[in-house]
Amino acid sequence: MSPLTDYHARIRESIPEAVLEARTELGNEILVVDAEHLVPAATLLRDEFGFEMLLDISGVDWVPREPRYDVNYHLLALDDNRRLRVKVQLPDVEAPHLPSVIEVWPAADWHEREVYDFFGFVFDGHPYLRRIFMPDEWIGHPLRKDYPVGGVPVEYRIEPAYVGANIVPSRARPAAGGVPARLRRDRGRQSHWTWTGPPASDVRREAGGAPASDEATPEEKAKE
């Protein structure tokens, strides 16, 4: 008889409606527990079955499945290296609530904060439920599936100052009209004797500065 059926049977004795499902998947034993009865079930697992260590709490957003969210508690019994995953399923509401297991395993403190930060689940009974990774004033919960990955669009443009650079790089030659100062090896450096003014990139455009010696500006204007 597998230990999973022991856990299921024992929990069913004292809290009949707690366990919704018990299955083994890919060598991991999983107990799906109802959110309301999470704390008594957790206490039972810790005291009677020796699951003293809470390794991790992880949330998963299974949109468009209903119930949308999964919260997995990964437990470890140190005596004989038994593992168990307790799963709580949460509905698709703006801020799903579930009880905090911080009284059962103090390790839950930061893990619950992490899950709140990334998914927005509210753990009732947690003494200091604040964001832990994102800045305090961040809006949104990044690991939800409707939150975009973010970032910037990356474009690979052909640099017009060099002809042939993208086809045969070793045969690239400067285009007619010269290479702009910012791409030259000496970066348009001027000597003390022939100083004609700061390079165009240093002069603020809004102030109407005159780009005296830099041929790039009409090119750049044409590009834009």
Partner: peptide, 23 residues
């Protein structure tokens, strides 16, 4: 720890890292 969930396609659905330093 690595908690990996797949939905049958070419990309993971969820990868969660149980970080020992965090604990």
């Amino acid at each position: 720890g690595f908690f990996v969930a797949s939905d049958g396609r070419g990309r993971p659905w969820r990868v969660h890292i149980r970080a020992p330093s965090f604990a």
